[in-house]
Design a binder for these strands. Structure first.
Length: 592
RNA sequence: GGUUCCGUAGUUCAACGGAUAGAAUAGAAGUUUCCUAAACUUUUGAUCCCAGUUCGAUUCUGGGCGGGACUACCA
């Protein structure tokens, strides 16, 4: 039974009986804790229909609900707010329907499909903290969509070609002396990243020398020999020159092996990978077709543009005067390719940092102009940068937080704190290490996901490693304690008598209320593309349950049916916590 | 300059236009013969400024102030 809709129905009926008119939008909200009741009807808007004052209106509705609906036992009116007290019999009914539903919160397939793109790294350097936010976000949004009944395709586009990788290649060729991941013991992506940094160092030195001998900055940047080599390699790559292609393949291969390790630990996965080296020429035909249809225009120098001034944007180049593509061209082609690869998807979600908001605005507009109806369903899941207490992360200045290092640190710290608490002294090394992994990554994921994606956020290492308070481990801990209860229950005989609960404790009512809200929050999370909603829901539920846990010792209960109820109640909370956390990619331990 | 996002306790985050703005953390004070104290309880403390719309504004509109991003024939 769905409490919310049942209640709304009852209220609608009551209003139409009393005032002979319908209300299009009922404002039902949770009651403030200082008043009695769980649901509050805001009666100001209804006062217009009732032609009475808000308080009078509220009182009339309340009285009739109590006498007729069978759901409401009491009410009180504060200003224009009607606070409703739901009968405990209704609460237990709500609870048992949730308890019976083994897949509670997961909707049946709605036969709709979406594509979610995330990660999409460059192949010239290792993943960092920013990528972690991206991956956790994208992956989680995909899972949230799944839970809402969608079939989801997780993809990424790997930026495997271009000047950036040629820079690493050039530096490796000059200074690598054949170094490989095997010979150096370095993870592949780290090794390639090392040469990217090396490139920058040499490049700066060369520029400095050239400038000292009188060149201007621009000239120096063009004339630096290592840059010339990188550019040459890029040209040779485009001409498919075998040696360069071979080196490119080798070095990218190292990077992929390294990324695989990182992705595996992060717990993210992809259904299909797109490679820029295979898609960068796409889109040109589309642009030419658009030109014929008059959607785009050609300038005197032969370059092709789109005019978006009518949409409040600028003009944007789509083909250079020499006929070659730009980034936008390629993205147009890739989007269309994906809809051909997955004909049933109704939209694409692009998880990309907010510095590309303009780009995606333009992209979606162009696709719409080209006549693709799905264009208006596409969504740029834009997220804010992750700042460090020391300021912005800059790869060239070495202030990036490496993804592997960070995960390792979190796991180590989790292990250390777990040992210090000494609750799991009987665990084997293997069990302890998998527990530390769960807690460390749980803390990290929760930390990055609890914030509204759009917001720029601060990553304070000291605070992120905290395992108390508004954290993943707080929720994991709540789960573990419930497991402990259930283990104990399994060891004693619980009579299997029908559940009959006469009166509920306040903490139980509010937990059931929260449980009943789970599907609503889940739908909201999908609508808003926000794992933060799921994260904060899980936290609130755990918090609320902890109050129950603290005030009501379950096994002291003499009434067996009440005892049974409380066990099932705890079990259900654990199940919802586990499911919600799973949507964030966070596992929960049975002990910690 | 233009476009856009953001501005809430000391700090990090919440709040479909609703009640006395919630949490967490930091600070102060408590709870362990009882299912795991990574918990719980009490307490101190905030909406950048000025107008407007509204019964009601952190939320919507306009104008300031402050911060970020974007505004390349780069990707």
């Amino acid at each position: 039974m769905n409490l919310d809709s049942a209640l709304r129905l009852a209220i609608r009926e009551t209003i139409s009986q009393l005032f002979g008119a319908a209300v299009d939008n009922l404002q039902l909200q949770p009651t403030n804790t200082e008043f009695e009741g769980s649901h509050t009807l805001v009666c100001f808007p209804i006062a217009k229909i009732s032609k009475k004052g808000p308080e009078e209106t509220a009182r009339l509705i309340g009285e009739r609900l109590v006498s007729q609906s069978g759901m409401i036992t009491k009410f009180n009116v504060v200003k224009g707010f009607l606070n409703l007290v739901i009968a405990d019999s209704v609460w237990t009914k709500v609870f048992s329907s949730i308890h019976k539903d083994k897949t509670y919160g997961v909707l049946l397939s709605n036969s709709k499909e979406v594509m979610v793109e995330y990660s999409s790294p460059n192949t010239n350097k290792p993943l960092h903290l920013g990528h972690l936010r991206n991956n956790f976000l994208g992956w989680s949004v995909a899972e949230i969509y799944k839970a809402n009944g969608y079939k989801v395709h997780k993809v990424q586009i790997i930026n495997d070609r271009g000047i950036h990788i040629c820079k690493s290649m050039a530096a490796w060729k000059l200074y690598g002396h054949g170094e490989t991941p095997e010979s150096s013991g370095l993870k592949g992506d780290k090794l390639v990243g090392k040469y990217y940094v090396e490139f920058d160092r040499v490049f700066k030195r060369q520029c400095g020398e050239l400038e000292a001998s009188g060149s201007s900055k621009e000239v120096a940047e063009k004339e630096a020999s290592i840059m010339k080599l990188a550019i040459e390699m890029l040209q040779q790559w485009e001409q498919r020159k075998p040696e360069v292609l071979q080196l490119w393949k080798t070095m990218n291969g190292w990077v992929y092996k390294g990324f695989d390790i990182t992705y595996h630990r992060m717990g993210v996965d992809f259904e299909k990978l797109y490679y820029e080296s295979e898609t960068y020429l796409l889109g040109k035909d589309e642009v030419l077709r658009g030109l014929e249809k008059g959607v785009f225009f050609k300038k005197d120098d032969g370059s092709v543009w789109v005019d978006l001034t009518a949409d409040g944007l600028d003009q944007k180049v789509l083909l250079r005067s020499d006929g070659t593509s730009v980034y936008m061209t390629q993205d147009i082609g890739t989007a269309i390719l994906r809809f051909r690869d997955f004909p049933k998807i109704e939209k694409q979600v692009y998880t990309v940092g907010n510095e590309q908001e303009y780009h995606f605005k333009v992209l979606f507009l162009i696709l719409a102009k080209l006549g693709y109806a799905w264009a208006k369903e596409c969504y740029h899941l834009s997220y804010g940068m992750v700042d460090l207490p020391s300021g912005k992360m800059k790869s060239r200045e070495g202030t990036v937080v490496d993804a592997d290092d960070l995960m390792e640190e979190m796991v180590e710290e989790a292990g250390k704190q777990t040992k210090e608490l000494g609750k799991i002294d009987d665990m084997s090394e293997a069990e302890l290490s998998s527990l530390s992994e769960m807690i460390g990554l749980g803390a990290l994921k929760f930390f990055l996901l609890k914030v509204d994606p759009r917001k720029r956020m601060l990553f304070d290492p000291a605070e992120s490693i905290q395992l108390q308070g508004h954290t993943g481990p707080f929720i994991q801990y709540t789960y573990a304690r419930i497991c402990s209860i259930l283990r104990k229950a399994a060891s004693i005989k619980i009579p299997s008598i029908p559940m009959e609960v006469k009166a509920l404790a306040p903490a139980e009512r509010s937990v059931i209320f929260m449980l009943s809200n789970y599907p609503v929050r889940l739908a909201e999370a999908a609508r808003e593309y926000s794992p933060a909603i799921v994260a904060n829901y899980a936290f609130d539920l755990a918090k609320e349950y902890n109050q129950f846990y603290q005030t009501i010792p379950i096994f002291n209960e003499p009434d067996p049916s009440l005892l049974k109820f409380r066990l099932e109640f705890s079990e259900t909370v654990a199940q919802v916590l586990r499911n919600a956390m799973a949507l964030l990619g966070i596992q929960v331990p049975e002990r910690m």
